[in-house]
């Protein structure tokens, strides 16, 4: 079943096209890695799907719900209620975590379940405790974000996103703000989620990781999808010269 369908998506900042004719689907349980050079539109694509940017044209469907349609050349969005419903089906993990600094780890995780899903405190705390155990952060429930390492903060933000039980989880360069020795702990968490068949779309610069964990890889450059396929196809049997150049530059670094 397709959890996410994007077709002919386009977006421009003023005169600058940043996304052109983007089409792909994500099936249930799939892990998609989006790779490509900086400024290739990866993050903008993620932000369009997460409603942090508006598309100019094309279509996005999330769990059968239309997020954007194009009618007479104009992008049309549904009513507020539907947009919110779609938002709750999607979790987003940011590059810079964006935890709430004035709340403890536990409060960060239960805030949305309590106020958005109107869960009881016992239920929210039970879910959060279980998530923290999974993230190996059980002792940190009462700590504040400023007391945690970058890797721990990012794991809290993953727990915060998972607490709403999203259908799809998006990661926007989840390890780019971390020291190299801390990226491993985040990748381990994502790997475990993949094993549990969590549907995920990961924008990343970790090529080895993308190759290992992804079911499919999308290579973007200059606002278009240059190549997409299984890791073996994209990394092992590269079709496009641009992809080859990009991967070569990565290997030489």
């Amino acid at each position: 079943m397709a959890m996410l369908t994007v077709s002919h998506l386009s977006k421009a900042f003023g005169e600058n096209p940043v996304l052109e004719d983007i089409s792909f689907t994500v099936d249930q349980g799939e892990v998609i890695a989006v790779i490509g050079p900086s400024g290739s539109g990866k993050s903008t694509l993620l932000r369009c799907i997460n409603q942090l940017e508006t598309a100019d044209g094309g279509e996005i469907t999330v769990c059968e719900l239309p997020l954007v349609r194009t009618e007479n050349g104009k992008a049309v969005y549904p009513d507020k209620q539907t947009l919110r419903e779609i938002r709750l089906k999607i979790g987003l993990v940011f590059q810079n975590f964006h935890l709430f600094p004035h709340m403890s780890v536990m409060q960060n995780i239960i805030e949305a379940p309590l106020r958005v899903l109107k869960q009881s405190r016992e239920e929210a705390v039970a879910t959060a405790t279980e998530l923290l155990r999974k993230m190996d952060l059980s002792e940190k429930a009462d700590a504040y974000p400023c007391e945690l390492s970058g890797g721990q903060q990012q794991r809290v933000s993953i727990a915060r996103a998972l607490a709403l039980k999203p259908e799809i989880l998006f990661f926007d360069e989840p390890t780019s703000a971390l020291d190299p020795e801390l990226t491993g702990e985040i990748l381990k968490v994502i790997r475990e989620l993949a094993k549990e068949k969590m549907t995920m779309v990961i924008v990343t610069h970790e090529m080895a990781f993308a190759r290992e964990v992804a079911d499919r890889v999308i290579f973007m450059d200059g606002g278009v999808i240059v190549e997409q396929g299984t890791p073996e196809q994209v990394f092992g049997n590269t079709q496009s010269e641009r992809t080859r150049q990009f991967l070569r530059r990565y290997h030489s670094e």
Binding site: L88, F94, N96, F100, A112, R115, R160, A161
Partner: peptide, 18 residues
């Protein structure tokens, strides 16, 4: 207050008032 705080709250489904 950094824009990221608004974006995090938004993606968690919180209303503008919340």
């Amino acid at each position: 207050i950094p824009q990221g705080q608004y974006e995090a709250a938004f993606s968690l489904g919180m209303t503008k008032m919340q």
